[in-house]
């Protein structure tokens, strides 16, 4: 599996750390039910999954990667920072 890092180009997935589902949004801290949902529950879908990868053996950027979890095909990778700003 190779991940196209926007800074470093196509790099082996072993350079990255995985940090799970990127579709979750952290709720307000006083909303206990929403916080439980955010911390513990996952859609865990088959097929296309959006997820965070951290390029710790490279440029140290956080990426939002779109990947097919049934085939391991990496479809897209963008900077998580850019996505959050848009």
């Amino acid at each position: 599996m190779r991940i196209p890092c926007p800074y470093c180009g196509s790099r082996d997935a072993s350079e990255f750390s995985y940090s799970g589902d990127a579709t979750l949004t952290r709720p307000a801290p006083d909303n206990a039910d929403a916080m439980f949902d955010y911390v513990y529950l996952r859609d865990n879908p088959v097929g296309v999954h959006r997820e965070y990868w951290y390029h710790d053996a490279g440029c140290h950027a956080w990426l939002t990667v779109t990947r097919n979890v049934s085939t391991h095909e990496v479809i897209d990778a963008v900077l998580a920072h850019d996505e959050a700003a848009s």
């Binding site: 599996m1 082996d12 997935a13 999954h49 979890v69």
Partner: peptide, 12 residues
């Protein structure tokens, strides 16, 4: 270490 439904892993 990543979500998968592929029943096969990678080389690392």
């Amino acid at each position: 270490g990543y979500n998968s439904y592929a029943q096969r892993g990678n080389l690392p």
